[in-house]
């Protein structure tokens, strides 16, 4: 990891005002789904009558500007990484990233593919990973409740990690994004 700076939990928790705000933040989480991989089909049962995510104050939101959680489902291909980073950077602080499924954790069954990335945590800070292929709605709800507890304790500090280690993340992102540059000659067209 080299000169990777970690945020100590103490400096977050000791701030009394942040603690009060975290009380409200954990009870109202708006989620942006980034479902270009697989697994989006697990979310409707989580949202609707059977498992009812809204009773914890978690609901879907349409744009990155309004969302607190960026949920990334399934494998992340090198091309979608660019869009994920853009969406993530458009979100206002505090923001949390949830990786959904095995692929954002370690590549899953696509670990040797030329087109996907293996560790999402190298490119944007992932606060919580839901493992499984696919995680069932029970697992999704369990993970979200864990995220709620983490926010309560002040442990979900991914956005601060991103600020402190911006160069490190950018370097990793550039290494992938250079691979996605167009290969064919465009003949002068842009």
């Amino acid at each position: 990891m080299g000169d990777f700076i970690t945020v100590s939990r103490q400096e977050i928790v000791d701030n009394k005002w942040e603690r009060v705000l975290n009380f409200f933040r954990q009870r109202s989480l708006w989620m942006l789904y980034y479902c270009t991989g697989c697994g989006a089909v697990e979310l409707p049962p989580t949202m609707t009558s059977r498992f009812d995510m809204e009773r914890f104050g978690i609901g879907p939101m349409a744009t990155p500007r309004q969302a607190d959680i960026l949920l990334i489902t399934g494998y992340v291909s090198a091309k979608t990484l660019k869009r994920i980073v853009r969406s993530y950077e458009q979100m206002p602080d505090p923001k949390y990233v949830v990786g959904f499924g095995s692929c954002p954790v370690n590549g899953g069954i696509y670990w040797d593919s030329y087109a996907t990335i293996n560790y999402l945590d190298k490119y944007i800070p992932v606060d919580l990973s839901l493992t499984g292929c696919m995680p069932r709605p029970q697992a999704v709800l369990d993970g979200l409740l864990t995220l709620i507890q983490m926010i309560d304790k002040g442990e979900a500090v991914g956005h601060k990690k991103y600020q402190l280690n911006y160069e490190w993340y950018k370097k990793n992102q550039r290494e992938v994004l250079e691979r996605t540059a167009p290969v064919l000659d465009t003949g002068g067209l842009k």
Binding site: F24, R27, G57, D68, P92, D93, P94
Partner: peptide, 13 residues
């Protein structure tokens, strides 16, 4: 819930 939502919205950047 709406009160929580509004307070949270005001607590964000």
């Amino acid at each position: 819930q709406s009160f929580i939502d509004v307070i949270k919205a005001f607590s964000r950047k």
